[in-house]
């Protein structure tokens, strides 16, 4: 059963499991980069983070937390089923885990869409100004979600100040002696601050982190669901049993890790300063 370069099957199993743990350490450090950015900016923009956080749909966040913890439970049972050669149960619980993972991602789509509608997505069209003038185009209920996204996209790529303009005229700019001088940032409308510039200081950093962190987490879930399709295929072929279940076990470790990341993301992104705003 074991591959030629191992002396025993136990050695191979041990090596695979240890290898997975080393991989997870790598994952810890990968997400660690995002968490350290969060730590720094939460420290720096304490109030802006609280105010921005209050715009998140805490009900959906709570729902998703429950869904994801549920998927960890089904995954643990799936691993247990593989260890005991319970073929049908393994398949059933892998499917359940996939379904719960898909549910989580579906809810995430709803949340993201709402952020697009409210112009709370970082970029030229960003506008977050809870105390000041309301952002144009927000809370017009007759406008449909796809239109809003379309408008957002148009706004971003059509008239972005500074950066995109420099990119468009890139060839021209490189002929200048100093690249920095050539691409100096310019305001959108001279003499008048844009809605983006008038936004609450630090709020765009919060939303940038929100999308980077939840986006990276969601990417891991998408990869996980992809891997589960593969595991499911081999499970239906009867590959996994009490003798050989390492792939299922290692995938379980990955899935639980993704769950743990969310266990931290939920309070750090959704629940800060909730008590100040009272109830949602």
């Amino acid at each position: 059963m074991h591959k030629h370069h191992f002396d025993t099957f136990d050695q191979q199993k041990d090596a695979s499991s240890f290898g997975m743990w080393v991989f997870l350490v790598q994952e810890i450090m990968f997400f660690g980069g995002l968490f350290v950015a969060y730590l720094v900016y939460r420290h720096q923009y304490y109030m802006a983070f609280g105010t921005s956080s209050a715009t998140l749909r805490v009900d959906l966040g709570l729902f998703n937390t429950i869904v994801l913890i549920g998927s960890s439970l089904t995954m643990a049972i799936a691993v247990n089923a593989a260890q005991r050669s319970l073929q049908k149960r393994l398949i059933a619980f892998l499917l359940a885990t996939m379904a719960l993972g898909a549910t989580f991602l579906g809810v995430k789509v709803i949340e993201y869409t709402e952020k697009f509608e409210k112009r709370e997505v970082p970029g030229a069209n960003f506008c977050f100004n809870p105390q000041g003038a309301p952002c144009k185009g927000v809370s017009h209920e007759e406008e449909k979600t796809p239109d809003l996204i379309q408008r957002y996209l148009n706004g971003r790529f059509g008239k972005l100040p500074g950066l995109d303009k420099a990119a468009e005229h890139g060839a021209e700019a490189t002929t200048h002696a100093e690249a920095g001088e050539a691409a100096a940032p310019e305001p959108g409308v001279p003499g008048e601050a844009t809605e983006r510039q008038r936004s609450m200081p630090g709020s765009e950093v919060y939303f940038s982190l929100y999308f980077a962190m939840t986006g990276m987490h969601a990417l891991h879930m998408i990869v996980g669901i992809g891997l589960m399709v593969w595991l499911l295929y081999w499970a239906t072929k009867g590959l996994y049993s009490a003798e050989y279940y390492t792939p299922i076990e290692n995938f379980g470790l990955y899935w639980h890790f993704v769950d743990i990341v969310w266990i931290f993301l939920f309070p750090l992104l959704y629940l800060i300063n909730r008590h100040i705003g009272g109830h949602h």
Partner: peptide
Amino acid sequence: LTKVTVVAGLFWLMILFFLTMVDFA
């Protein structure tokens, strides 16, 4: 070995957090 690996991962994460905050704080 597994336990040590987990602890090592968290320890390095703490290095990243702590020494970065030495500056920012």
